[in-house]
């Protein structure tokens, strides 16, 4: 199985503090993966590196079939090759309608001139409607995103990521602050999404991870501590030591 994303020997430090320490990590096409780890384990920095927000001090980040190096590319370029990212806090464009938010995310040319002359076709509008159904916001299309509830904003953001049609989806704590029903819905959206693309979920909540039922990577002090099924890693002595034992 060829890897979609391969990170090898990546390190990064801030003012002497090593946030990521010789990290190596792989993810295949259409794989669902959960990343867990205590605070400061480097989960968010890991995402920053993949999405181009932080540049690694050393190491390689290689993407796709043609082994393209992501180091040195801008966030926008990385997003365009097919990596979508969802932030911890829901970040949608609150001053714009749900439909506008989704239209903005649709996989279309991103250049200023193309965008300036863009007029949504019927197919585009159909796609928006379809996505809104998928995330359960079909009745809220004309509403401003700012009026949505916290959970709805999370879904909208996931919907926007799906509209981007990425090959890899990075999701940071999608279930934080959700009611149990909302979590269930989120789980099903993510599991569905992982059928056609790779999805990496960073999560604290073990219950949520268990429900995802996927391979788990445990990060600690910027490096991989253990990898395998949830049951496998929860039995790992090191993991119990640094994370679960406390």
């Amino acid at each position: 199985m060829s890897a979609l994303l391969e990170i090898s020997g990546v390190s990064v430090s801030f003012d002497g503090f090593r946030a990521i320490n010789n990290l190596s990590f792989q993810i295949a096409e259409a794989e669902l993966r959960a990343i867990i780890g205590p605070n400061g384990a480097g989960k968010t920095t890991f995402m920053d590196i993949v999405t181009g927000k932080t540049r690694p001090d050393e190491g390689r980040v290689v993407w796709g079939d043609r082994s393209m190096s992501l180091v040195g590319m801008s966030e926008a370029q990385i997003a365009r090759v097919g990596i979508g990212r969802k932030f911890q806090k829901p970040t949608v464009f609150e001053d714009q309608t749900v439909a506008d938010n989704l239209l903005l995310a649709l996989r279309k040319p991103r250049g200023p001139l193309a965008v300036l002359l863009f007029r949504p076709t019927t197919a585009d509008l159909d796609r928006v409607a379809e996505l809104s159904t998928e995330i359960g916001l079909e009745s809220a299309l004309a509403r401003k995103a700012g009026e949505l509830s916290h959970g709805q904003k999370q879904w909208l953001e996931i919907g926007m990521l799906l509209a981007q049609e990425p090959r890899l989806l990075l999701v940071d704590e999608p279930a934080a602050g959700m009611t149990p029903e909302e979590r269930e819905h989120t789980t099903s959206i993510l599991v569905d999404a992982a059928k056609t693309r790779a999805v990496v979920v960073v999560e604290h909540d073990m219950e949520f991870v268990r429900r995802l039922n996927c391979r788990v990577t445990v990060l600690h002090e910027g490096a991989v501590l253990a990898e395998g099924s949830l049951d496998h890693v929860t039995r790992n002595a090191d993991v119990i030591d640094v994370y679960l034992g406390r």
């Binding site: 801008s74 966030e75 926008a76 997003a79 949608v92 464009f93 995310a105 991103r110 981007q164």
Partner: peptide
Amino acid sequence: NEARVRFLGYS
């Protein structure tokens, strides 16, 4: 929200 636009792939 500049960062969001950037991660959507817009320069």
